[in-house]
Computed example of a mutant assay.
Amino acid sequence: MAEGPGDPAGDRDVEVRQLRRLFRIFGATQCRDRSPVYEALSEGVADDDGLLDLLMSTPRDQRRPSLLFAAVNLLLASDPGSALAGYYPVRGGRRPVDDRLMPAFAAFCAEHRDELGRLLRTGSTQTNEIRRCVALRLGLDHVRRRWPGPLALVEAGASAGLNLLVDRYRYRVGGQEASAAGASPVLITCEVRGGSPHERILGPVPEITSRRGIDRHPVDLADPGARAWLEAFVWPERLDDLAVLRGAIDLAVSSATVTVAPGDATTDTARLIGELPGREPVVVFTASLLSYLDFDARAAFAAQLRQAAARRPVAWVFAEAPGLVATTDGLIVPEGSLARRNSRYLIGASLRGSGHRDDALLALADPYLRWLAPARHRTDDFAWLPTDADTG
Rank of each mutant, 00 (worst) to 15 (best):
A28Q: 14
R170K: 06
G6Q: 06
F295C: 03
F69Y: 10
N128R: 09
S343C: 06
R20C: 07
D98P: 01
F26I: 12
E43G: 13
L151E: 04
A156G: 05
V97K: 07
E15V: 14
D215W: 09
T127I: 05
T125K: 01
M1C: 10
R279C: 04
R212T: 04
A28L: 13
F285I: 05
G174A: 10
P197F: 00
G139T: 11
T58Y: 00
P277Q: 14
E129L: 06
I208M: 07
L138E: 08
A222E: 15
E155G: 05
V37Y: 10
L51W: 02
R121K: 04
M102D: 12
A71K: 04
P334Y: 14
L52A: 10
S42H: 04
R378Y: 05
P150S: 12
M56F: 01
D294I: 02
G330R: 06
L84G: 03
I25F: 08
D388Y: 12
C31V: 12
I201H: 12
A339F: 03
A261H: 09
G274C: 10
Q126M: 02
R170W: 04
A309K: 06
D33Y: 15
R91W: 09
L385A: 15
F108Y: 15
V16Q: 13
R378K: 10
M56G: 08
E320Y: 09
L164I: 11
A326L: 00
L272C: 14
D167I: 02
L162F: 06
T269N: 10
R32L: 12
A248P: 04
Y368R: 14
S196M: 07
L361I: 13
A310N: 01
M102A: 15
D359V: 13
P204G: 08
L68G: 02
F318I: 02
R216I: 12
L41D: 14
G203N: 02
R137E: 06
S57M: 04
